[in-house]
Amino acid sequence: MARLYQRPMCIASSLMVPMATLATPPWLGLDGVPPAWPVIWLLPWALADGPVSGALSGLAVGLVMDGLHLSGSSQIPALVLLGWWWGRLGSRAQPIQRSLNLGLLAWLGSMLLGITLLAQLHIRFGWPLALEMQGWGWHTIWCQALITGLLTPMLASLQLLLWRRMPSK
């Protein structure tokens, strides 16, 4: 089977990440916090394509997402790490496709992403962070992880199904 990065349609699906980030309606978030779209896209990709492809895809999506956001904090470290980890899980273990597993992995990924962003805030604004900002940070982490974990089983299952059924060249 051809690797995902060799299929133009699979690569084109990554365009959905910035588009979804820009177009997320307020009602799709939890208390206004949108889901982590890079995590939702990266999980099935890394599971299907292995650690190296996962890490490189994490880097690519992270670069795009950092460009879309304000400077200051970067999503790249967390996405590269997640891509590598999920790629190893996908290549070494039995295929992960149950909704609960996908949701749990996405929840963990979103938590890790949030924690790295909060850590970067700590570095930028000094330790300890103001109490209000810390409260807001943890609130954002939990809301984002929850909505990402809820949405991923639906979307990632669909992605895995489509990518596996797609005829190889």
């Binding site: 980030t21 820009l22 177009a23 997320t24 307020p26 978030g29 208390d31 206004g32 916090v33 949108p34 956001h69 304000l70 904090s73 949030g114 962003l117 954002t140 984002q144």
Partner: peptide, 14 residues
């Protein structure tokens, strides 16, 4: 306003 992210990590409008 063509895109908005008033909550979350980056609070911005496009």
């Amino acid at each position: 306003v063509i895109a908005r992210r008033p909550r979350g990590w980056w609070q911005l409008l496009d």
